[in-house]
Design a protein around this nucleic acid. Structure first.
Lengths: 243, 243
DNA sequence: CGTATGGTTGACGATAATCAAACGTCGTGG
DNA sequence: CCACGACGTTTGATTATCGTCAACCATACG
């Protein structure tokens, strides 16, 4: 039912709450920061992994190179989200991070994760990684069994949810990414993204003007996920009744 | 070029090598084991996460429930692979693990990961999780940009690779999973899996008899990943030339 | 200006989903 | 023993979704 919101879900508190209970805000004051301008690369796939990052402000995309010389977007990161976690698998970053607007990150030198004494970051790494893992798993499910319309609706609802959790409007927001990046992330072509936006607009589900979005009918967007093949819908209904 | 093999890749040494360099085999003797019969559930999505597991022998699948009352296969685990890592995100398992044949697992009680002193498992958790994360990311890429034939070829080559790393034949093996499970994992329907097998058979790439597979032409299977739209292929070629 | 980039729209086609039927193998119970 | 149903698999016919190709517009920028 709320698969849309759950499908991605980089919960707003993810990065913050995991670092220990009382979490004095000053604890971060010592951590170095770095400004990253729009379009600038924070780290490159294959680079030596020297640090982890936490987005302080702004937006990032992470991408991986595909065999066909293209780039595949693997995620969008907002304030509070971690960047570079996949670099812990080896000593190299497994993806590239690019700022989609002028942004700022907190830098956690990689040595922090190797100290003998348990730093707060080190202690919470498994949680952070596991969360990330669950999200990627849900993305895989989305890519496996949703149609284009459902993918786009998932994307918008998820973005809305994450922005809301950060204190922004849940209904009006500005897309920081291009149609091509959205399509790459969702596994559909740019034309399909464009057409889907247009069609949703036509049906009154939202208003689109370039990159500014206004969600007009959240319920209708959610109900797109009920539109399943008949047999599946019947099965789902029975399932709910039995529960 | 070898995207097929890389696309998944639960490297054979993953679970084993990560636990410390010399790795005396006896170190595991103390860890409790558990037999899991074919079809039996090791843990259920939503269950309290009390332990992590490492496959000692046999095969598992992990699945998540989809909104349409179906189940989506999120991975296949062979000997040496970890199970239950996604449970570290919360205190509940994010997926269900089912044995695809009579199997045995090593059980790591969850308390091990919470001890103050760093246990070997605890120390290697970030690596294990990050590896898993990278694999899921690659699965997402596969689901985003490969056609049915490439997905099936990826699956077979990956399985071949993993079996080989475990001392089995890389060319002849027995599928432990149904066509439906393969299709679910790859994001295609069961009929498509079947037809793709048939077509590959017809072209002499492999022999299929029920669930026994014989890979006849690994090169041809790999070359399926060069079959890209013309423009992409040209771009890829140029890229290689410039590198 | 000219060019590059991002976005929209239309026409067309290919890939894979859907629907349907058939077959073999199991295990179960009559 | 055989009949029966539940599965798993294969194959064919048809459909629909989405990708491809192409044209066009708007904006930014040197």
């Amino acid at each position: 039912m709320n698969a849309a919101v759950l499908a991605f879900g980089r919960s707003g508190a993810a990065g913050r709450a995991a670092y220990g209970a009382p979490h004095p805000r000053d604890a971060w004051a010592v951590a170095p920061r770095r400004r990253v301008h729009c379009g600038e690369i924070l780290f490159l796939e294959g680079d030596r992994c020297r640090s982890l990052y936490r987005v302080r402000s702004g937006t990032f995309k992470t991408t991986v190179a595909t065999p066909d010389a293209g780039e595949q977007v693997t995620g969008f990161q907002l304030a509070g989200d971690m960047l570079g976690l996949d670099g812990l698998a080896s000593d190299c970053h497994a993806s590239t991070a690019v700022a989609l607007e002028d942004s700022e990150v907190v830098v956690f030198p990689h040595t922090d994760t190797e100290l003998e004494g348990m730093t707060p970051l080190q202690a919470s790494l498994p949680h952070l990684l596991a969360r990330e893992l669950v999200r990627k798993q849900k993305l895989a499910v989305l890519l496996s069994c949703m149609n284009a319309e459902q993918r786009v609706a998932s994307f918008l609802l998820n973005l809305s949810h994450r922005l809301h959790a950060r204190g922004y409007s849940a209904t009006e927001f500005h897309l920081r990414m291009t149609r091509r990046e959205i399509g790459s992330y969702l596994g559909v072509k740019i034309e399909t993204v464009s057409r889907t936006f247009t069609e949703m607009h036509r049906r009154g589900l939202l208003r689109v003007d370039g990159r500014s979005i206004v969600l007009l009918d959240r319920q209708a967007l959610l109900s797109l996920f009920d539109e399943l093949p008949l047999r599946a819908r019947v099965a789902a209904t029975e399932r709910v009744l039995h529960a």
